[in-house]
């Protein structure tokens, strides 16, 4: 039995050394650049540390208390949720509709797919500059068109009542193609005989087929797209930073922008860390939900 144990430890030793030699650098980087920094955020959130300060003290949950007593932070949270609540249905429903339309026939399919997908991969910082020109109150294309049609115009990015919706529209514009592509993949995965079965069962029209087969079969994809879109909406930063800086009057300030301003604008590391933790918790909850959905998808396919 001793020989057994020795042999086993020997094989472990040789394989282990290979394994860690190869995985070691990545494991080190993973710990040093992701895992430990992420953990440190929780710790910093319990201190009153400011960037550049030599000392800091432990303040317990003070940062969180302050945060949740701060109407501005509430405003940022509320804006974020309102924004996500506009972006998600807007992206998912239009994405689904366009995917259905594009996939329903073959002509120009590649062109339509490319045209709708293009915004997703174009540099948002540069496109935000283009959007700003489109939305310019006097010389922007949108207001010119509206006034030519005799419709009321607005100062879209400077008016507290329109700014959040405007940013949401830009997000929908950006993420629509992504949702569309995911739905197209989901549509391809639906077995053809289900449609034949529906035909036999008397589901004749396109709407019947949609209601009896397509939409129910897209259920898991739908859930998945909803969560992925919500995650992307939560991580919105570029447009806020470039187009509004959270204004006017914090009407478009969102979580990630608040995080950025507190941490790197005011250098309030402790407070920034507390916001980071709130952000992380929301993202992790959504991601875990997404993994559950993915697991289920794997089982079904």
């Amino acid at each position: 039995m001793t020989t057994d144990a020795q042999a086993t430890s020997m094989e472990h030793a040789s394989q282990s050394s290979h394994g860690w030699l190869l995985a070691g650098p990545a494991a080190f980087a993973l710990l040093a650049l992701i895992i430990l920094p992420a953990l440190s955020v929780f710790f910093v959130a319990l201190t009153d540390w400011q960037f550049g300060a030599r000392t800091f003290s432990y303040v317990g949950l003070e940062n969180y208390h302050e945060l949740f007593a701060d109407p501005d932070f509430y405003k940022s949270l509320r804006n974020t949720f309102v924004y996500v609540l506009i972006v998600v249905p807007g992206t998912v429903l239009t994405g689904l509709a366009i995917a259905l339309l594009v996939e329903s026939d073959r002509t120009l399919r590649t062109f339509y797919r490319a045209a709708h997908f293009l915004p997703f991969m174009a540099t948002l910082a540069a496109m935000a500059v283009a959007w700003e020109a489109l939305l310019h109150p006097t010389i922007g294309l949108l207001n010119q068109a509206l006034s030519d049609l005799g419709l009321p115009t607005a100062n879209w990015l400077r008016d507290p009542s329109t700014v959040l919706v405007t940013l949401a529209v830009i997000a929908i514009w950006k993420n629509l193609g992504f949702a569309m592509v995911l739905f197209m993949a989901g549509l391809k995965a639906i077995p053809r005989d289900l449609y034949d079965a529906a035909d036999v069962d008397g589901a004749v029209g396109a709407t019947d087929r949609l209601r009896t087969v397509t939409l129910p079969m897209l259920g898991p994809t739908m859930l998945f797209v909803v969560i992925v879109t919500a995650l992307r909406a939560l991580e919105t930063f570029d447009t806020v930073n470039i187009l509004t800086q959270g204004g006017p009057a914090r009407a478009s300030e969102m979580l990630l922008y608040t995080l950025y301003v507190e941490s790197f604008g005011y250098l309030q590391a402790g407070r920034g860390a507390a916001i980071t933790v709130v952000f992380l918790i929301i993202v992790v909850l959504l991601t875990l939900l997404q993994m559950r959905v993915m697991d289920r998808r794997v089982h079904y396919s």
């Binding site: 020989t3 057994d4 042999a7 020997m10 094989e11 040789s14």
Partner: peptide, 17 residues
């Protein structure tokens, strides 16, 4: 694959490990 116990010789030489 490593054996759990015993030894392998090739050409009269033990090649374990």
């Amino acid at each position: 694959e490593p054996q759990s116990a015993g030894s392998v010789s090739i050409g009269g030489q033990c090649v374990d490990g």
